[in-house]
Nucleic acid binder design. Structure first.
Lengths: 134, 134
DNA sequence: CCGATAGTATAGTAAATTTGTAGACTTGCT
DNA sequence: AGCAAGTCTACAAATTTACTATACTATCGG
C-alpha cells in the first residue's frame, strides 16, 4: 500500500503539473488546495527536489515547479522516491535489491513468482505518467 | 512489501504442502525447519486455520495440515489473509475497499491507474498457486 | 544593505504497526 | 489421570509513519 506521504506527493505533483508554465507555486498554496499538512508537505517537496523532479526558487515570487515534462515522469518513479521499492520483497526489487537470507534465489520458486508479479505491476506503473493522472 | 509474517506464512505453507499425505506436522517442526520464531508462528498458523486454509489436530500425533490441495490455494489469497490488501490504495481494493476522502473516484485519474496496476499484479498472484512455490 | 519572503535542513515526537513473547487454557489421546 | 499438542489473550519491544518545531539560508524589492 502507498503511504500518506506518497499520496500527498502524487497530489502535489498533480497540482504542479496543472499549473505549469506559470510562476512557481508556493508550498502554502499546494497545502491549502490539496489539504496537505504544511510542514509535512515541505519535507515531501524537498525530497522531490533532491530527486531532481522539482526545482525551487527562494524569496518573493519563489516556489516550486516541475523540472521535467509531466509526460516523462512515471508514477513508478514517484512512488520509488517516496516509498521505496514497488516489489513485494527486496530480493526481487530492481532498484532496492537486497539478497535473501534463508533462501537461494537461483532455486527459490517464490522468487520467480514475485519477479513475475513485479514485472506485471511495473508494466503499468512505468508506463503511466504524471500527465495521466491530472 | 510483504511483512515478515506473510513471508513466514508462505514458508510454513510451503513446508506443509511438501509434507502432505503424511501425519499432521508439529508447529515446532515447522519453526525449526524454516527458522521461524515459535510463538510468532503459532499466531500465523492459527490465523490460517481460522481462514480455513489449515486444519489442526490436538493431542499426541496432532499438528497442522492443509485443508485444500496446494494447486487450489493462490498466493494472492495467502497474502490477503495475512497482510490484507494487495492493491496500492483502499479505494482500488477488491476485498478491502474503502471510499476515498478527498477524491471523486468517478473522475479520479489516479484511481484508474491504480486499478490497472492492481489488475496487473493480480493476474499473476491469483494464478500462481501454493503448488508453484514448493 | 535591510527586511520581508520563501525554501532548506535537521531534529524531535506521538501514534500506529510490526514483530515477537508469556502464560494460562482447552482438547484429545492413551 | 496425565501428557501432548493446539488455542487464546494480552502484553512489550522495535520500527515506521505522520506530523511538528525551530533555526537557517537564499532571493528580491526598495
Amino acid at each position: 500500500m502507498l503511504s500518506k506521504k506518497a499520496q500527498y506527493a502524487l497530489k502535489a505533483l498533480g497540482y504542479l503539473a496543472e499549473n505549469r508554465n506559470k510562476t512557481p507555486v508556493l508550498i502554502t498554496t499546494i497545502a491549502k488546495e490539496k489539504h496537505i499538512p504544511l510542514k509535512f508537505l515541505e519535507n515531501i517537496l524537498l525530497q522531490l527536489n533532491k530527486a531532481e523532479i522539482l526545482g525551487s526558487k527562494k524569496g518573493k515570487g519563489g516556489g516550486y515547479f516541475l523540472l521535467q515534462d509531466p509526460k516523462t515522469i512515471s508514477i513508478a518513479k514517484i512512488i520509488r522516491i517516496i516509498d521505496g521499492p514497488i516489489a513485494l520483497l527486496p530480493c526481487v526489487s530492481l532498484y532496492f535489491y537486497e539478497r535473501c537470507q534463508d533462501c537461494n534465489e537461483k532455486v527459490c520458486r517464490l522468487n520467480k513468482v514475485l519477479i513475475e508479479a513485479r514485472d506485471a505491476i511495473l508494466s503499468v506503473l512505468e508506463n503511466k505518467m504524471l500527465q495521466d493522472i491530472v
